[in-house]
Design a binder for these strands. Structure first.
Lengths: 216, 216
DNA sequence: GCCGACAAAATTGTCAACAATTTCGTTCGC
DNA sequence: GCGAACGAAATTGTTGACAATTTTGTCGGC
C-alpha cells in the first residue's frame, strides 16, 4: 500500500478535486450563484476536467452546487425559507440523535459533554463569540457522534454543509450567545441525566429558537 | 429546445445510464454485493464507460452502491441494523412531514387522504396484499407531498430507495397488513383533523411498529 | 429604433486510448 | 508440503480530443 498514510500525497485526482472544491465553497471563496466553469476549476486545482466533473456531480447530490444540462454549474444559493426547512429537518434528526445519545453514551462521553458545557459558559461570560461558536459546533458534533446513529449523522452533515453561510451570519448576532447558552445547557443536562425524552425536547426547543432567529 | 417533451429520446447518455442502472438495482436485478464492472454495464446499456462512471458516482452518494478505490463498485448491502437505523430517521422525518401536512394541506388534499384510507381498508378486507402495499406507498408519498417540505422529501426518497429489498420482504408477511392498516388510519384521521401533534405521534407509532417487525 | 434570424464563441457532454493499481495464479526457495 | 515473492490478467483511474448544446453578438428587415 503505497500512499495510505498521508492523505493528499498520492490521493487520486478526483478525491483531491472534490476536497479542494468543497473546502473552497464552504470557506465562502465562491460567491453564491457564481458560475463554476469546469476548465477554470481544472486549471486552478491542477487536475483534469474529468475529475472536476466527477467532483461536481458528487457536490450536486450533496446539495452544494446546482447543475443544469449543458448550462454548467453554480454554487447553490440557499434562501432563508430553505434554511428554515433544512433546520426543521435538523431539528427532528438531532432530536433523534440526542435521545439515542442519552441512552447509548458511555460515562466518559457524558463527562465530556459536561466539560463542553462549562467551557461554553466560560466563553459567553468572557464575551468570546468566536470560541463559543466553535464549542457550539463541537457540542452538536459530539452528540451526534455519541448517538451511534450513522445514518442520521450522514444526513446531518449534508444538511449542515448547506447552512454554513447562514450559520456564520447567526453567530455574530449580539445577544444570541446568551440565549443559545441556556438551551445548550438544558440539552447537556437532559442527556447527562440519561433522559431521552427530555433530551429530544431540549434539542427541539433549541432549534426552534434558531429557526425564529433565522427569520429576520 | 429540441427534446424537452419526451424524456428518453434525446436524453443524455449519463442520465439514461443513471436511470437504467438505478431501476435495475431497485428492481432487484442486481444481486446484493454483486460486482458492478464498468465495462459490462457500459456494454449492457449501450453507453460509454464515462457515463457509467458518472452514474456510479451519483448512485454512491445516494447510498445505493458502494465504491472502493481501484477495486470497483458493488450494490450496497443494507443489513437489518442499518435498515432499522434508516427507518428511525424516516420516523422523525415523516413525523415532521405529517405535522406540517396537518396544517398545510388543502381541503381537497385531505379528502384524497380519506379516499386512500377507504381504499386501503377495502384492500385488506379483500385480502389483496399487493394492492395494499401500493396504496401504502402512495399514502406515504402523498403525505410528504402535502407537507411542502422539499428538503425532508428529498431526504426521505433517498432513504426509501435503500430499503426496497426490506420493504418487499415486509409486505408479504402474513398478518402484517391488518396491524399496519389501523396505524395508517390513525395517521389519516389525525391529519384530516388538522392536529399536528397527533399526526406526528401516529406516524411515530406506525414506524415504531415497522421497526419491531424488521427485527426478526 | 426594435424584433427576429443567423452565425460564432464558449461551455458542457461524450468518446476511445493510455496509465496505474489491484487481484489472482504460478513458481521458487525453504 | 508450505509460504513468500514474482508476474500476468483484469479493472479502475486519467488524459486529451471530438461532438453537441447553449449562449452571445451581429446583421438585415420592418
Amino acid at each position: 500500500m503505497p500512499n495510505q498514510s498521508r492523505p493528499g500525497t498520492g490521493e487520486q485526482a478526483r478525491r483531491l478535486a472534490l476536497g479542494q472544491l468543497r473546502e473552497a465553497i464552504l470557506r465562502g471563496e465562491m460567491v453564491p450563484a457564481q458560475r463554476l466553469v469546469e476548465n477554470e476549476l481544472a486549471e486552478r486545482f491542477g487536475v483534469t476536467r474529468a475529475s472536476i466533473r466527477a467532483a461536481l456531480i458528487e457536490l450536486e447530490s450533496q446539495g452544494l452546487v446546482e447543475r443544469i444540462r449543458n448550462r454548467g454549474s453554480r454554487v447553490r444559493v440557499v434562501t432563508v425559507e430553505e434554511a428554515v426547512a433544512i433546520t426543521e429537518c435538523r431539528l427532528v434528526l438531532e432530536g433523534l440523535c440526542a435521545a439515542k445519545a442519552a441512552t447509548a453514551a458511555t460515562d466518559e462521553q457524558l463527562t465530556e459533554l459536561t466539560r463542553l458545557g462549562t467551557a461554553m459558559r466560560k466563553a459567553v461570560a468572557d464575551g468570546e463569540p468566536l470560541t463559543y461558536s466553535e464549542l457550539n459546533h463541537e457540542l452538536h458534533v459530539r452528540i451526534r457522534e455519541f448517538s451511534g446513529q450513522q445514518t442520521a449523522v450522514a444526513l446531518l452533515e449534508r444538511l449542515n454543509a448547506q447552512l454554513v453561510r447562514h450559520r456564520f451570519q447567526l453567530a455574530l448576532r449580539p445577544g444570541r450567545p446568551q440565549q443559545s447558552l441556556n438551551e445548550h445547557l438544558a440539552m447537556i443536562e437532559a442527556i447527562v441525566a440519561r433522559d431521552p425524552q427530555a433530551a429530544e425536547a431540549a434539542v427541539r426547543a433549541h432549534l426552534t429558537s434558531v429557526i425564529e432567529a433565522l427569520r429576520d
